[in-house]
Structure formats: structure tokens, C-alpha cells
């Protein structure tokens, strides 16, 4: 009567389950990218005029804002799936903590892939609308297919990396609600403190470690190792957590 189940099999089932159950995350992705798209069309122009009859205006278009919004989206999504209702619904069905975490990570990876892909592609939507609907004359920075692939891959690495940060933060909050207060205080506090001391913000230096890396390989190593470490830490913490529903 009793049936044996393997971890891999369970993770697969839970992943399939989560792709269905967490579907609202995908609607919010579309919504958030659409808002970022509108901002990208509207904002970002600067101008200069002279008294002898010249007025120059400059407008930049890019999907940068869409990518940034996607970062925020995955961060929030990752935190959300560590919260109690989401963890509890895993335990309505067959799971242990390991399979729950692994399937969460797989879900975040899929979400990251979709987010990164659509974010980078939205550049074409922005440029198409600017050209055909707003009738703008455009200078378009050339982009080769290989560069496009780099763009998607790098965006994916970033988004997945941020999802691991969100997952870790969410996990800490699950251990103790105090972290929900402590983490923002530390982040904002360190920015203010560094500003007060009139020095370069530690946090910025931390981020530059990733954002200023110009070697693709080193960048991939840096983000992937960080991602792995954060996910491992989260799994280790969640593995001891009780489910109180």
C-alpha cells in the first residue's frame, strides 16, 4: 500500500504545481513591465536652448527601466514565496523542506528566465512604438544577435541573483519577524551613515563588485557563486523550520 517517492520526482511535481499555483506572479510581471514600458516612452529627455535661436532636445530610449522593474518584481516574488501561506500550501501535498525549497528555486529560475527575456525584448517594443506611433526619428545603437544573447543571459544572471537575495531575505524574516524591520534599517542606515561620514557608500561598493565587472566570465562566476551561497543558506535555514498552520 505504502508508496516510495524520490526527491527528484517530488521536486518535479512540486515545480509543475508551483508553475500553476503561482500564476499571479506572471500577471504582475506583465503589468510591471508595461508600466516600466510607459515610463520608458515618456521620460528621460533633456534639452538646451540658446539666445541665438537654437533649441536642442535629446531623448534616450532603452529597456533599462524595464530591466530594473523586473529586478524589483523578482525580489518581491522571491520574498512572497517564502511567506507562511506559500510554504504551508506545499505541505498540503507531498513534500519535505528540501523539495519545497528546490522547487521554489526552480520556479524562481523559470520566472527569472521569462522576466529577463521579456525585459530585454521590450526594447524593440519601445523603439517600434517610438518610431511608428510617436513618429520619432531615431538613432539606434546597433545590436548584434550575439549581443542580444549576452543581454538576455546577463539579465537572467542578474534577475536570478536578485531572486536569491529576495529568497534569503524572506527566509530571514521567517525565522524572526524582526528582520523585516532590521534589514531595511541596516540598508538605509548604512547609506545615511556613509553619507554622514562623507564617504563612498559601502553598499554601492558592494554592488559595483557586480555592476562594474566587465569580464563576462568573471561576472557569471561572481553572480552564480553568490546565488548558490544564498540559496544554500536559505535551504539550510528552512530545513529546520516547523510548519505551523
Amino acid at each position: 500500500m505504502s508508496s516510495n517517492v524520490s526527491l527528484v520526482e517530488t521536486v518535479k511535481k512540486q515545480y509543475a504545481f508551483k508553475m500553476k499555483a503561482y500564476i499571479d506572479a506572471f500577471s504582475s510581471l506583465v503589468g510591471i513591465q508595461f508600466i516600466a514600458f510607459l515610463f520608458s516612452l515618456g521620460g528621460g529627455s533633456s534639452s538646451m536652448g540658446t539666445s541665438d535661436g537654437y533649441h536642442f532636445e535629446l531623448k534616450f530610449y532603452s529597456a533599462d527601466l524595464v530591466i530594473i522593474f523586473t529586478f524589483i518584481w523578482i525580489f518581491v516574488t522571491a520574498i512572497t514565496i517564502t511567506t507562511k501561506p506559500y510554504r504551508n500550501q506545499d505541505f498540503t501535498f507531498v513534500t519535505n523542506r528540501m523539495s519545497s525549497s528546490l522547487s521554489n528555486i526552480l520556479f524562481l529560475l523559470s520566472a527569472s528566465l521569462l522576466g529577463a527575456f521579456t525585459a530585454v525584448l521590450s526594447r524593440f517594443l519601445i523603439q517600434t512604438v517610438a518610431y511608428f506611433l510617436l513618429k520619432e526619428d531615431l538613432y539606434i545603437a546597433s545590436v548584434m544577435t550575439s549581443e542580444m544573447m549576452i543581454g538576455i543571459t546577463v539579465s537572467l544572471l542578474y534577475v536570478f541573483w536578485i531572486s536569491s537575495i529576495g529568497y534569503f531575505v524572506g527566509t530571514l524574516v521567517q525565522i524572526h519577524k524582526g528582520f523585516a524591520l532590521l534589514i531595511p534599517v541596516i540598508v538605509i542606515g548604512s547609506l545615511f551613515y556613509d553619507g554622514f561620514m562623507q564617504r563612498y557608500a559601502m553598499l554601492l561598493i558592494l554592488f559595483q563588485f557586480y555592476f562594474l565587472e566587465s569580464s563576462m566570465v568573471l561576472f557569471a562566476i561572481k553572480t552564480l557563486i553568490t546565488t548558490a551561497v544564498l540559496f544554500f543558506a536559505s535551504i539550510a535555514i528552512l530545513n529546520r523550520m516547523e510548519v505551523r498552520r
Binding site: 516510495n4 524520490s6 500553476k20 499571479d24 500550501q89 498540503t92 507531498v94 519535505n96 523539495s99
Partner: peptide
Amino acid sequence: FNNLYTSANTILVDDQMFFPPAL
């Protein structure tokens, strides 16, 4: 505790069973 085998062969039914709201 944290056992996949017992989880697969056990079901706990109570009024706090949590199901995903999207389904």
C-alpha cells in the same frame, strides 16, 4: 519530520489546510 516517505503516505486533513488561491 521532514520525511518524504511519510509525507507521501500520510495526509492530514484539517480546517487549516492551505490551498493556492489561484487554482
